[in-house]
Amino acid sequence: MTNNSISKKRVDSVFSALQEKAKTASVRTKLARIHNACEKISENTVVSVANVVRYIAEEGVKLSKRTIYNDREGGNPYKELIEEWMKHSELVHSEKKSRVKNVDTETALSLVDEDDLAKIPDIALRHKFSLMYGELRSLRNQVTILKDVKALPSISQSQIAYEANNDDLLTYQGNNKELSDYEREVIKDFLSAKLAPLAFDEDGALVSKSVIKRDETLSGEGLKEILEKLIQ
C-alpha cells in the first residue's frame, strides 16, 4: 500500500468520524461539501482554506474563513477536515513532482546505457565514451539543481524588512493572548492591501484607490476586535 493510499484512508476515516460526531444535519452537509471540494481541488493543487471557501461558495454554500479558523469548545470539524486534506494533498503533489523529475532525467539518459558502451570493441574508445557518459550524468544533475534553485522565489531587502516588521506585529501578545491563524490572515491581508479599493501610499498611510461604495466590505471579518486585542 502506497503512502498516498494510506494518507487518503486517514482522510476518509477522519471525515467519517466527524460526520458521526456532527450534531446537526447542517454541519454534516457542510462537511460533505467540504470533503468533496477538497477531493476535487487536490487533483490539481494543494488544498488550502482559501481555495476551499472559494470552491464551495461557487456551489452556493456559505462558509467564511473565520468560521473555519475559529477554535471552539469540542473542536472545529471544518478546520480538522481541511487540515487533513491539506496534509494529504501536500504529500500527493510532492510525490508527483518527484516522479516527474526522475522520469525526465532517466528518459534523457536512457538514450545511451552501459550495455551500449560495452558494445564498443575498442577498449580505449570505450573508456573515453564511458567517461563522457559519466560526465553527462553529472552535468545533468547539476542542471537539475540549478533549475530548482532558479525556481525559488527571490526576496528583496525591502520585502525582508516588511515581513520582519509584520511578524513582530503579528506575534505581539496583548494580555498574553496570541493571534489565531484567522486573525493573522486578516491582518496580513489588510497590511498587504489586497482588498480593493484600499492601498498604502509611500508614507504608509491608508488611501482609497477608487470611489468607495456605501456598505462595501473593506477588510476581513473581525478586524476591529483584532486591532483592539493588539492594543490592550
Results as ranks from 00 to 15, higher is better:
Glu43Met: 14
Asn44Ala: 10
Asn44Ser: 13
Val46Ile: 11
Val46Tyr: 05
Val47Pro: 00
Ser48Ala: 13
Asn51Glu: 09
Val52Lys: 01
Val53Lys: 03
Arg54Ile: 13
Arg54Val: 15
Tyr55Pro: 06
Tyr55Phe: 15
Ala57Tyr: 05
Ala57Leu: 12
Ala57Pro: 07
Ala57Gln: 09
Glu59Cys: 04
Gly60Asp: 09
Val61Ile: 15
Leu63Thr: 04
Ser64Met: 07
Ser64Ile: 04
Ser64Lys: 04
Tyr69Ile: 10
Asp71Pro: 00
Gly74Tyr: 03
Asn76Trp: 15
Asn76Gln: 11
Lys79Cys: 04
Lys79Asn: 04
Glu80Ser: 05
Glu80Met: 04
Glu80Tyr: 05
Leu81Val: 08
Ile82Leu: 02
Glu83Gly: 00
Glu84Trp: 02
Trp85Glu: 06
Lys87Ser: 04
His88Ala: 00
Ser89Cys: 05
Asp104Ser: 09
Thr107Tyr: 06
Ala108Asn: 04
Ala108Trp: 10
Leu109Met: 15
Ser110Phe: 03
Val112Arg: 01
Asp116Met: 10
Lys119Val: 10
Ala124Arg: 06
Leu125Tyr: 00
Arg126Pro: 00
His127Gln: 15
Phe129His: 14
Ser130Ala: 13
Leu131Trp: 08
Gly134Phe: 01
Glu135Asp: 07
Glu135Arg: 07
Leu136Trp: 11
Leu136Gly: 02
Leu136Ile: 13
Arg137His: 12
Leu139Thr: 02
Arg140Gly: 01
Asn141Trp: 12
Leu146Pro: 15
Lys147Glu: 15
Val149Gln: 11
Val149Trp: 03
Val149Asp: 10
Val149Glu: 15
Pro153Leu: 07
Ser154Gly: 13
Ser156Asn: 05
Ser158Val: 00
Ala164Val: 08
Ala164Asp: 12
Asn165Gly: 09
Asn165Glu: 07
